[in-house]
Design a protein around this nucleic acid. Structure first.
Lengths: 103, 103
DNA sequence: TCCATAGTTCGAATATAATCGAACTATGGA
DNA sequence: TCCATAGTTCGATTATATTCGAACTATGGA
């Protein structure tokens, strides 16, 4: 059961995080993951976009270190790396999530 | 003494803030403005880039609502809009500045 | 073994951004 | 009025992103 590679905490760059969060689609994905508070498959996000586009956005979220994807069977389970990001950049992700929650 | 237009608080978008902060040069400008704690001219940032490039980055920082520029004589005085951003998106800018301070 | 499902990768088109020199604008001082 | 200074705007080049269909891969179930 081959798994996907993710950056380690010390490889995560603030600019990559900021960039990943500058796209409305990706921000929506992050918001839904945070609200759900559980792992979600790519298909669960019903954002009216083709699979290849969604895959592209997940790739960027993963590369930025925001999202962790575990392969379980035929599904890819995605989770926010809240604790790790919080450890490296305290308050950044939390405050962004709060801002999203208000709007 | 013509002044530059800036977005009002309610026109500021989170995605624009994130985007503006995803570039290393702009992040450096923001960090220096925060550290200085005072208004700075464009020329004070000695980032080894031509004037037109710096002007471009200031334009994006202004459009995002992060920086306010007041024309005083021949100089353009730039300041971070910390209080306003803090009001609209509590913690976002502060935590980013803290992250910059650590690295 | 065959098929459906879930998601990735590829490739090409289009859009957006970064970069920087050159020309321009506005102000203040000589 | 002339000039220097500070910064913007313009225009062209190059680089990077977004988008999406089509082909591909991996897994589990019939």
């Amino acid at each position: 059961m081959r798994q996907i590679k993710h950056p380690s905490i010390d490889q995560i760059e603030l600019t990559d995080i900021m960039y990943a969060l500058s796209d409305p689609t990706r921000l929506e994905i992050v918001a839904r993951l945070a609200n759900a508070g559980r792992k979600m498959t790519c298909g669960e996000f019903d954002l009216n976009r083709p699979k290849s586009s969604m895959s592209h956005h997940f790739k960027i979220l993963r590369a930025a270190g925001l999202v962790e994807t575990l392969i379980e069977g035929t599904e890819h389970m995605n989770a926010l790396r809240v604790n790790e990001i919080e450890q490296k950049f305290p308050g950044v992700l939390q405050s962004v999530l709060q801002a999203l929650h208000r709007s």
